[in-house]
Amino acid sequence: MAETEEKVEEKQPKQPVDPNFVPKIVAFCCNFCAYAAGDLAGSTRTEYPSNIKVIRLPCSGRVDTRLLLRAFEEGADGVYVAGCEEGSCHFAEGNYWAKRRVKNAKKLLDEIGIGGERLEMFNFSASMFDKFVANAKIMDERIRKLGPSPVNVAAAKSK
């Protein structure tokens, strides 16, 4: 993680980011862990950034490159995938597939010019609502530092 945060420091926009900027972040959450953890965060009244849009998946292995890119197409500033801890996927290895796909999509995002650091993969179990909140905060903070996605910047300019 530290490595990515360093990359984020490097990639910060030269102009200061608008302090009122609220990033749109999409979280693809596995039904058996992250989604349940998010539920638990709600039940325990633990607050997490409200700009995280959670999308429930049957398994983190459901994500593919197209789905991740599509989120950026639709205006997301950041995207993350949250799956079960490694070794405890409900479908045995869906989270490993997700991990590889996220890694691959990061490279593609770099190539496109959006930046791979806007995409991340997290692993935690259904009981770890604190981790759900912590990871949501990490992502929120990171995207706030990076500023709006280049796609959204261009869209705002053309308006």
């Binding site: 490159t65 197209r66 890119l69 599509r70 950026f72 197409e73 593609l108 190539e111 496109i112 010019g113 959006i114 280049p150 796609v151 261009a154 869209a155």
Partner: peptide, 13 residues
């Protein structure tokens, strides 16, 4: 699908 998305995104930028 992936190539379409990638090209569309790059064009949007």
């Amino acid at each position: 699908g992936v190539l379409t998305s990638a090209l569309k995104l790059k064009r949007k930028i």
